[in-house]
């Protein structure tokens, strides 16, 4: 379980996150939405320990992520907004490199690559050089990297942008499958695609979680309408 408690962060004097608190249980897919500059990427960077908060805690199963960062990162899968990959490598080489870097034993690397590539539909790209892939294909490779070792916390920043329609349609099943082993937090703008797989929406505004919308028992259309309303300023 991932618990975020009273998180605050500011670049210089401009506060981005003021008091952000929420809990993500295993099996949940939490989608963080908000306008441009609302702090979604900053929030995910903090959760990925790439930025140190000014205040607040990030607790993974009760352990402070910033006090025991290596232990926390071992459970972490992170896909940044603009994943920059090594263009001189093939997809298979890249995933093997990332698996080794994350400490996966060599004998299990091949199986991990096979599972992740199947989930992200990049089986046919494994021998392709990354430099020759399209932006969407690279996103899928980055997603495969993030879920490669079946992390317990999966952070996906704007992962649907640049993906084609078929992959967007498939994103729901990818996230659902990832939720079977992870607490998933997604930041993004593609509400109509994300309502298909999200268990909860968090609306980030003025540095706080202004609205939390549960998806359970609500139709996709209704969920999308509520989220858009919350984003527009109304409370549902």
């Amino acid at each position: 379980m991932l618990e975020i408690r009273n998180l605050a962060f500011a670049y210089s004097r401009a506060p981005v996150l003021r008091d952000v608190s929420f809990v993500v249980s295993p099996g949940e897919v939490v989608v963080v939405v908000g306008g441009n500059g609302a702090g979604k990427t900053t929030l995910l960077r903090i959760l990925a320990t790439l930025a140190v908060p000014d205040a607040g805690l990030v607790l993974a199963d009760g352990d402070n992520a910033f006090e025991r960062p290596l232990r926390y990162r071992r459970q972490l899968g992170y896909m940044p907004e603009n994943p920059a990959l090594y263009e001189d490598m093939t997809v298979k080489e890249y995933l093997a490199y990332r698996a080794s870097l994350k400490g996966e034993p060599a004998k299990r690397v091949r199986r991990r690559i096979s599972e992740a590539s199947e989930m992200c539909q990049i089986d046919g790209l494994l021998r392709s050089a990354i430099g020759r892939l399209s932006f969407g294909q690279r996103k899928r490779v980055a997603l495969a990297d993030a879920i490669l070792l079946r992390p317990r916390v999966l952070l996906l920043d704007d992962f649907l942008s640049g993906l084609d329609t078929s992959m967007r349609d498939a994103a729901g099943s990818v996230l659902s499958e990832a939720a079977s082993f992870s607490s998933v937090i997604v930041a993004g703008h593609e509400i109509s695609d994300l309502v298909k797989c999200a268990t909860r929406f968090l609306v980030l505004r003025d540095g706080i979680i202004s609205t939390s919308i549960e998806a359970a028992g609500v139709s996709a259309d209704e969920l999308e309408r509520r989220v858009r309303a919350a984003l527009a300023g109304g409370v549902s």
Binding site: T49, R71, R73, P80, N82, P83, K102
Partner: peptide, 14 residues
């Protein structure tokens, strides 16, 4: 420059 630093530093490597 490319932003790959984020990918490296999010792994459990010192």
């Amino acid at each position: 420059r490319t932003g790959r630093m984020s990918l490296l530093l999010s792994t459990a490597v010192r």
